[in-house]
């Protein structure tokens, strides 16, 4: 309800801006023009959203599984942590934008390069947040494991992972917002389908209303993903 109000206020301010400045539609189309473009190109937008959404979901899934696995391995092995942690930070210092053309060169114009970029974007925040959660288990709780003479594995399963679940949830919520960015970057660099491709083509043909329509679809998709991740977070934290 609150969300709908926000969207309405945003659209009204936008419309007022268009009226007040008399800016031509090829610079900034009015919200109604965007809605018209939405309905006129509904078929193409839905098909493109399905492509981008697929990339995002697969990328999220692979990035999450990978992130959880790496964080668990790093939580168990201090030596591995020492090696992998700087590599993780370094990988994050490389702008994904710069990697995208190379990945497209290596993997072609298909889904592969987009999924890899999404995985790269999802992986780091998820891994670091989950790892922090695993390592932040209070020492007094770990005493229970020491008293039982528990193996590192059992300490992980029965003490550390339960403690880190809320952190994993927040990591997923962050990842859900960033994941579509990865897919769109990949599509901008080289694609023949997807919302990023539609935006790029629309921009090139000065069909700014279609570009905004594609953007609106992307935002809606990201919001849905964020909402889902939020539900998951609450479930994990309960």
């Amino acid at each position: 309800m609150k969300g709908a109000l926000t969207v309405l206020v945003f659209a009204l301010v936008w419309q007022a801006l268009v009226w007040a400045t008399g800016v031509p539609p090829y610079i900034l189309p009015a919200p109604l023009a965007v809605v018209a473009a939405l309905s006129a190109n509904a078929g193409e937008l839905v098909a493109s959203a399905a492509v981008t959404g697929g990339e995002v979901l697969v990328g999220m899934l692979v990035g999450t599984v990978l992130g959880i696995a790496v964080a668990l391995a790093m939580a168990v092995s201090e030596r591995l942590r020492g090696i992998v942690r700087p590599a993780l930070v370094m990988s994050q210092a490389v702008p994904v934008f710069a990697l995208a053309p190379i990945l497209t060169l290596w993997m072609g114009y298909g889904l592969g390069s987009k999924i890899v970029i999404t995985v790269l974007i999802v992986f780091f925040p998820l891994t670091s947040v989950f790892l922090d959660g695993l390592l932040a288990t209070p020492d007094s709780v770990l005493d229970l494991g020491r008293l039982a003479g528990a193996s590192r594995w059992r300490v992980l399963v029965w003490l550390r992972i339960p403690h880190a679940l809320p952190a994993l949830g927040s990591g997923l919520a962050v990842a859900a917002v960033y994941a579509p960015i990865g897919a769109v970057i990949g599509e901008w660099v080289g694609a023949s389908r997807g919302l990023g491709y539609v935006m790029l083509m629309a921009n090139a043909r000065s069909k700014i209303d279609l570009m905004f329509a594609a953007l609106a679809v992307l935002v809606a998709m990201t919001m849905c993903l964020h909402w889902l991740a939020g539900r998951l977070t609450r479930w994990l934290a309960a």
Partner: peptide, 27 residues
């Protein structure tokens, strides 16, 4: 048998699950 000032209960386990935690940790 060990008891600290804090109860050290695992928040995402039931009371019963917390009681058997030692057995779980020993495997």
């Amino acid at each position: 048998a060990y008891m600290a000032q804090e109860d050290l209960l695992q928040p995402r386990m039931s009371a019963l699950g917390n009681v058997v935690l030692g057995q779980r940790l020993r495997g």
